[in-house]
Computed example of a mutant assay.
Amino acid sequence: MDFAAWFDINNTLVNIPIGDGYAMSWIEAIGTAFGLLCIWYASQEKTINYLFGLINVTLFAVIFFQIQLYGLLLLQLFFFCANVYGWYAWTRPTSDSGDMLEVRWLNKQKLAFTAAVSVLAIGLMTIYIDPFFFALANIAVDGLNMFGAELASPALEPDAFPFWDSTMTVLSVVAQILMTRKYVENWILWVVINVISVGVYAAQGVYALSIEYAILLFIAANGTRQWMNTAKSNKAKQSQADVTAEEVTA
């Protein structure tokens, strides 16, 4: 079999009896498996999640291009960089004493700023998602042709769900950034994203992804619960440390 065929969503691994039947591709199955591993280990605050994440986003970028969800395709490029940064941030001491990044909540000012930027970004992306991606795709093709690729100009279809695609894209960017800094709010956003994702992927006929995101919804809810408890514990330890420091200096 041609190597490139393994990345084709029409290269079927197994037929699943969902609705009229669903042919799940190899790339979809492998990407789904690594995605589940990534989110599960992230909810457990395990750094290995970033390795699984790098594999997952690479495969999903190929899938999203084939089903015309351009915002989510661009999102995978961001996720790749964010996974590399997150791996670095989670393993790098934050002080000379060797303290590591801890789970905590956003303060009120950061929360308000994050919400305002998210709403604005969703609105702008909904309007400009098609022209932006079309321009980016043509720039990429022109760049490759400069090196002798001889590719034809891409014939792209309009985004299938511009508002929902933009909402998932923007919130996913925000959630991933918050995760790399270990803010609890990242999991709350993942719950919202997963609810939307289940509907969008089902409407696009990508049922394996829809099922995956239904599973991820429960993992995100569990991650929210666990990180809330961890943040509460960290805050209590910090308060005790502050009291001890005051007693020492008194």
Rank of each mutant, 00 (worst) to 15 (best):
Q76K: 12
F78P: 01
F78S: 13
F79M: 12
F80K: 10
C81K: 03
A82P: 00
A82L: 06
N83V: 00
N83F: 11
G86L: 07
G86V: 05
G86H: 08
G86M: 05
T91R: 15
T91Y: 02
R92K: 14
T94Y: 06
T94A: 14
S95G: 14
D96A: 15
S97I: 07
G98A: 11
G98W: 09
G98T: 12
G98E: 02
D99W: 12
D99H: 14
M100F: 12
E102R: 15
V103E: 10
V103R: 01
R104S: 13
L106K: 05
L106S: 01
L106E: 04
N107G: 03
N107D: 15
K108A: 14
K108M: 02
K108N: 08
Q109S: 08
Q109N: 10
Q109C: 00
L111A: 07
L111N: 02
L111H: 09
A112P: 01
A112I: 11
A112R: 13
F113N: 02
F113R: 14
F113M: 12
T114D: 03
T114W: 08
A115K: 09
A115S: 08
A115C: 08
A116E: 10
V117A: 14
V117S: 05
V117T: 05
S118C: 06
S118W: 02
V119D: 06
L120F: 15
L120E: 04
L120I: 15
I122A: 05
G123E: 01
G123K: 08
T126N: 08
T126G: 03
I127F: 11
Y128E: 08
Y128L: 15
I129W: 00
D130R: 00
P131D: 00
P131C: 06
F134K: 02
F134G: 04
F134A: 13
L136S: 12
A137S: 15
I139N: 04
I139H: 09
A140W: 09
V141N: 04
V141A: 01
D142V: 00
D142T: 03
D142A: 04
N145T: 06
M146H: 12
F147D: 02
F147M: 05
F147P: 00
G148H: 01
A149W: 07
E150T: 10
L151I: 11
A152C: 00
A152E: 15
A155N: 14
A155C: 00
L156C: 08
P158N: 03
P158K: 06
A160D: 07
A160R: 13
A160E: 06
A160Y: 03
F161V: 10
P162K: 09
F163S: 04
F163I: 12
W164Y: 09
W164N: 04
D165A: 00
D165L: 00
S166L: 01
T167N: 01
T167W: 12
V170A: 02
V170C: 00
S172A: 15
V173H: 07
V173F: 14
V174D: 04
V174G: 07
A175H: 07
A175R: 04
I177H: 09
I177E: 07
L178A: 09
L178N: 10
L178Y: 11
M179C: 08
M179G: 02
Y183S: 09
E185I: 09
E185L: 12
E185Y: 13
E185S: 04
